[in-house]
């Protein structure tokens, strides 16, 4: 019996127990990774966690990391939080309808070549690196936004825009990198994720649902609206949440495209600054081990907890759908 087995097989087979242990160890790598990320970031931030005035951190927008005479250091991250929240909201306002609509079109209406082409283009969009999106925001979209929202001083349209908080007096003097530009860029970045996840969810709805709806006399849109959306509700929600997670955590694009100005925006085209961009811009200058350095790590912890929360929540939502609907 043994003589029929080729020899090279036996050498690898002898290694089976150690290889299985190696495989098991690698299987735990993601757990090790996530714990290590938390521990190492926490280790750098730890000395500041107790010292930091947390109330001040969340309620003040005075962010003065480099103290000057008569200008004591102050770590109020409210404006940064507001920057992250506002850019993400604008991104979601655009990305959710566009992403869901595009996913429905690709999954339910498009056929053959059109469908394949759209899927490939969406996939390539997802592959474009964030620094390139930032570059597009800075060099291409920014000037367009600036032109659209700049009017001659004193014109009635300019007054309308200022009263509606669409533009401010400074819009014309800026580079065009602001809240709106950053939001649009973030939307474009998160749309591919929303589209591909929602499309997966819609495809997972059994065809018998569609057939039943059509047999009852519903047309294509009614099937989508009354049958597919309710059936895929959890998955679609999870897709939008993951899109939000991506928008919150995005760094290089918002660093280049939001104007990087630490204040609470009053108009749609005011420059803002996000938590991620602050870390990216200031970590290089921060002195290793001083308060500023540690506060940047605290910002990292806040981001880490928020995005992990979003991910776990979306995972639980999808799990809910599987329990209720095992097919």
């Amino acid at each position: 019996m043994t003589s029929t087995t080729p020899k090279k097989f036996r050498i690898l087979d002898l290694l089976e127990p150690p290889i299985e242990w190696l495989i098991r160890l690698c299987g735990w790598s993601s757990i090790i990774g996530i714990v290590a990320i938390f521990l190492f970031i926490f280790k750098e931030a730890a000395p500041m966690v107790l010292k930091l005035d947390w109330l001040h951190f969340f309620t003040s927008s005075r962010w003065i990391p480099n103290p000057a005479p008569g200008n004591p250091p102050s770590f109020g991250a409210l404006a940064l939080l507001v920057g992250t929240v506002t850019t993400t909201s604008i991104a979601l306002l655009i990305a959710v309808p566009v992403g869901l609509g595009a996913a429905v079109y690709i999954s339910e209406f498009a056929k053959g070549k059109v469908k394949e082409t759209l899927k490939i283009v969406i996939e390539l969009l997802a592959a474009i690196p964030s620094i390139v999106w930032g570059f597009i925001g800075l060099m291409v979209l920014g000037p367009i936004i600036k032109d659209v929202f700049t009017t001659e001083s004193g014109s009635w349209w300019g007054k309308v825009m200022v009263t509606l908080h669409l533009a401010s007096a400074e819009t014309g003097a800026s580079q065009g990198t602001n809240l709106l530009t950053g939001g649009i860029i973030l939307a474009l970045m998160s749309v591919p994720l929303v589209v591909s996840l929602s499309e997966d969810t819609l495809r997972a709805v059994p065809d018998s649902y569609r057939e039943a709806a059509l047999a009852l006399g519903a047309n294509s849109w009614e099937t989508v609206r009354r049958v597919l959306f309710p059936a895929a509700r959890n998955g679609l929600l999870a897709a939008c949440m993951l899109g939000m997670g991506r928008a919150i955590g995005e760094t290089m694009a918002v660093l280049l495209a939001t104007g990087h100005n630490n204040r609470i925006p009053e108009a749609l085209t005011d420059p803002v600054r996000t938590m991620t961009a602050t870390i990216a811009a200031e970590m290089g200058e921060a002195v290793h081990g001083d308060e500023h350095y540690r506060v940047l790590f605290i910002l990292g912890i806040v981001l880490f907890i928020v995005t992990c929360g979003i991910n776990v929540a979306s995972d639980l939502i999808v799990k809910g759908i599987k329990k209720a609907n095992p097919a």
Partner: peptide, 14 residues
């Protein structure tokens, strides 16, 4: 999934 959602800048800090 959580690791996939960790912001890239947090990976940088790590």
């Amino acid at each position: 999934t959580s690791l996939a959602g960790v912001p890239s800048i947090v990976h940088g800090l790590f």
